[in-house]
Amino acid sequence: MSILDIWLGILEGFRVTAGITIYGLLFAIPFGLVFGVAQYLATGFVRFVVTSVIEFWRSSAVIILLFVFYYALPVIGVTLSAMTVGAMVLGLNIGGYASQAVRAGLQALDRGQKEAGQALGLSRPTILLRIELPQALVAMSPTFINHIIQLVKATSLVSLITLTDMTFRAKEISQIAYEPVPIYLSLLMAYFVACYPIALFGRWVERRVNPVREARNGI
């Protein structure tokens, strides 16, 4: 089996890998934002509930969650497609991590930022949306890029719930051709090729969204 055949074989799984990543982000981004902000603002019982939900998704083993949602839920009559289970479990797991980045970013802001907003008479939502979140998200952008890369790599687990992603294809090919070394090396490179542009994109975003730091460097 030539290297080209191996690559073309793995490439057939790229659509699923990319699909799970993008579909997963649709879970991760809203979950991370909403729950991170909620944990920052909430007190008492509400905070306890928010924290519990985050901890469930953050502290559970992803692979077990995949099995539970894919194989166990149908027993009680809930059947989700493998794609949905994969995207939801991976997305909410990464979203749990991201929520902590959001909360940390908000908590790290100088207290004076909120107070200046309050002294000007701005409402709490306006302070959050116009003053706190823009600064926190910029500060957190390297961490978010980290999480997206982690999500791409974590998608390899969906091969265990029947999805034909790059990892699943590599396993198939190696069973047919029995050339595990070049095949898994190619798979390794395939994930790198998928992730590295995201890292580059992250650096570009950082430069774009940080006019203040750029301005300071410019002086």
């Binding site: 100088d110 107070e115 600064q135």
Partner: peptide, 10 residues
Amino acid sequence: VFQNFNLFPH
């Protein structure tokens, strides 16, 4: 007016 200005840096 605050001691540390508290301007919005962004």
